[in-house]
Design a protein around this nucleic acid. Sequence first.
DNA 1: TTAAAGTTTCAGAAAATTTTGAAAATACAA
DNA 2: TTGTATTTTCAAAATTTTCTGAAACTTTAA
Lengths: 168, 168
Amino acid sequence: MKLNEAKQQFIQSWGAIGTQWGINRTMAQIHALLLVSADPLSADDIMEELQISRGNTNMNVRELIDWRLVEKVLKAGERKEFFIAEKDIWKVAMRITSERKRRELDPIIKVLEDIGEIDGDKKDKEVKAFTDTVGQLQKFARQADKAFDNLIKADEHWFTGTILKLFK
Amino acid sequence: MKLNEAKQQFIQSWGAIGTQWGINRTMAQIHALLLVSADPLSADDIMEELQISRGNTNMNVRELIDWRLVEKVLKAGERKEFFIAEKDIWKVAMRITSERKRRELDPIIKVLEDIGEIDGDKKDKEVKAFTDTVGQLQKFARQADKAFDNLIKADEHWFTGTILKLFK
DNA sequence: TTAAAGTTTCAGAAAATTTTGAAAATACAA
DNA sequence: TTGTATTTTCAAAATTTTCTGAAACTTTAA
């Protein structure tokens, strides 16, 4: 398989997978493109490569920067901005994990707390079914929350250089 | 907070979260409704409660059954079908995990294998950038694949009754 | 300053996804 | 069988999400 063909397939697949996980196709494609590019790309490069508009490019690059998956770099003597992706896949996974945790898990825990305590007869089977499920979810969500925190913390500190490298 | 109000909020939140993870809103809402219902519900019950059409109900219940999160139950003397959700959140998490693994991770690994070996000069920095990233992703995906397999296997066997219960 | 290069914004258009509802299919009782 | 209750299907409609492109804005060099 030729490089360009393989690149193209990677970009398309990454886009499709992103879609299934609630990430917009273009954002995933830009990410894929930057992940496999040797050098920083400009907005024009991305537009050209993916055949998308300037507005779309700008919005999704900004979103990727928000997620700390991509950053701006400047080239000496060039007025344009260029973009580069974090290439260490472990770091990428960590950033996505911590970002989704912050944006989604934390709010879930809040909702579960709000609705966990309800008025009404605790003997009523409808009440019981509700509080049982919500209680289980609370426990589960808190456990997951802690687990992710530890994972992220561990990665940001000492572990990084030693034990976790075994898994890379 | 009253039971019905809390139930309603749970259903809405679950739907919103589902959307962010690429699961359609109605599917998540039906799941939420069944999770907090004491008794099995019929298609009519679900339609009534969520104010959705019969077709929509049917499609999404079928999908939930596909995911092994919901099952049909029959009531003696009733011609209608009723539905009930798996209520053990640990099992729910396992099923979602193994289903997404099967549907998504496995195909990713296949794509990465297909595109991992490309023609061309391995000294070329474009080629190198591509194969490096794809190689890292392959390693990562395989590691994740194994980890999930072990988790699922462990849960299906001996562990279930003993060690893992500590985390519930 | 001015103007050219580059970036951002956002209303409307396009595309993708979800939902409806009625017809067809199926299951069951008499 | 036949008739009725129930479930399933799927084309079209509604909704949601994404994308475009041109105007507004910003930055920089001269």
